[in-house]
Amino acid sequence: MNKLKIWDFITWVCIGLVLAVLLLVIGHVVVSGIRFINLKFIVETTSNAGRSGGIRNVISATIYLTLSALLLAVPVSIAAAIYLQEYARKGRLLNILVSGIETLAGVPSIVFGLFGFNIFVTLLGWSWSLVSGAITLALMGLPILTRTIMEAIRAVPRSYRDASLALGAGQWTTIVRVVLPAAFSGIITGIILSMGRIIGETAAVFLTFGSTLNSISSIFDSGRTMPVHVYILSSESVSIDNAYATATILLVVIIALNGLAYLYQGITKKRG
């Protein structure tokens, strides 16, 4: 009996540790960072290499890069998910396609960075730029986007498709008019979650989008995203205060996106 209690206790300690770590990391960063954040920090551009001023240009570079990557990755992922879920038959081809997605999901960020650096930055001569970064990030986002969208499509009941087909609609018409609208909320949730991942990406972005602190006016401009800003400010001891502030904003955005996805999922589920 006593031995049982000990293992119960050890297990509680473990799960307690996991939750404590989450609270410690988020708590420490947010509590220390919140006092450095004010309106000026968000609306002013960086000056003196990030020692003073705000991070407006960093925020806008992050938004540009994230949206460009999503713009490239989302349509492809939806198409891929439709093929895998609606058209593909069980067999060798499906196995290869699915294991391709699984493998791509496991490729480290730095390897994507090297790839993008070699092809887009050097070979195609686009240098560190929005276009190099966006294509690299779009490739990185493919697996998670495709998987979440596949799940959303899978959740659409078989009977919807049967009803549409029975009315004489073709397969494509059924997908566009029936399946996709029914899966819409799930697809949006997937996109929001993937967006969080793309925003937080550092290594690949550092190698393909660069780290210059300018405002972006064309797709061939380089820029610095929030994670890269946190990295440079803290590891090169430029300004720990501003690193805290930037990390806090980044964390709040990520948590907000996760919360949004969670809530949206909850609401649409209740509505049926």
Binding site: G200, E201, T202, P227, V230, A247
Partner: peptide, 9 residues
């Protein structure tokens, strides 16, 4: 979902 740079920081 928390970015790796936050853990590093």
């Amino acid at each position: 979902g928390i970015p790796s740079v936050i853990y590093g920081f």
